[in-house]
Design a protein around this nucleic acid. Structure first.
Lengths: 122, 122, 122, 122
DNA sequence: GTGGTCTAGACCACA
DNA sequence: GTGGTCTAGACCACA
């Protein structure tokens, strides 16, 4: 369910992180259920366990997952609000850049309308 | 006119690039006029000439500036459309991510309205 | 009477250990009376018996409990002084660190006063 | 200036972290001056560069230092307040544990008085 | 078995 | 030269 693009300059551990967040958002990984172990995930993705461990550490630092040493890594409960807040924050940053690039509010709204009319795609 | 934030993890050459683009957009650097030489710009900003050279290379690769060997670096003419298209493309990408993160169109529009009401800030 | 916080990174066996010490201090477990067996305690807490065994081993190494093979695990007599001494030692260590971090004696006393005014909380 | 105790169960990267914080507090490393590079520090301490990198990442996450990729790692300015707040927080936690261990406020104050009378030692 | 730490060392972007 | 990422793999505490 997770695909890596090694040509992409985005670090692998970030690519994994983003896709896990998406999977949590979609409900594939539910609250308090275990994620694949570091080793299992690493094996599945064909990357080094250290790389997955880095992803998990980052997600834990954000409160999205929690680890129990010796038991595994688990999805935090009720992180909907948190994920939403992260998305809003990113959107604001992007919109501010767009504004600074000379895009008018009406243009931005037009783009929003066009994109949200289409069917959702992941 | 260009300010660098060394604490920001955005590479220096990208920070310079973005601000040159903004200055071109604002008309500070006009079509077919010369930009400061690599050395002059580097000296003014207190950075390594290699860094400015990297910025200019990137801008040239995008067609925003052009080099005349032995004479200097010049702003391309009529790159308004191009700069606009770049900004729109970036915005679309960001909005698509927001949509995939579960943000509703109306929410996005509300954020747009809030941000564009405020006074322009750089 | 013992509650575990799996999200806390403090190892489970240490959490159990601290709470047993507190229960002994509070007189819930009295001298020469038996603690629940490893299996009973593990079952009650929903943890692996190995984990409880580790706790008991640690408590025995500190002389707080003793084992009679085939009969069970018992609370040592007269360990008040010992528990007190342990607590004082830990406190001294923490205060020394605080002092080395530049905290003034008066500040420390103020914090003490604030904390001891409040109602005891576990 | 930094000494490691490999027998100590405290991870090396944490030991380094604590000692760098102390050196910053003591003014050995001043604001906006560079720390030894990852490689230099690793060489000096006889540890792997990755270990030092982990320390620096952690310090950066706490805002105590900042890195400029390609240039080095620098001490943040004005982190006195921050370092102080960290120390106070740690002290509060330790005092709360002491209180829960049955230590009386007056005893804690006595220990404070005893320790702060002595000459400061690092 | 599970995550955490650490080594040894490679390659990369950046300044 | 500087930090960032990644691999390969070892050893450890913990459950």
């Amino acid at each position: 369910m997770i695909s890596l693009d090694t040509r992409n300059h985005e670090p692998i551990y970030i690519q994994i992180e983003k896709q896990i967040i998406k999977l949590i958002r979609l409900g594939v990984y539910e609250g308090n259920t275990a994620l694949p172990s570091v080793r299992a995930m690493a094996c599945e993705l064909g990357v080094n366990p250290n790389t997955v461990a880095r992803t998990y550490k980052s997600l834990e630092a954000q409160g999205i997952i929690y680890t129990i040493v010796g038991k595994g890594v688990f999805v935090s409960e009720n992180n909907e609000n948190q994920l939403k807040a992260m998305a809003v924050k990113q959107l604001k940053k992007a919109l501010l850049e767009a504004k600074n690039s000379g895009i008018e509010g009406q243009e931005a709204i037009n783009i929003v309308n066009t994109l949200w009319e289409e069917k959702s795609n992941d």
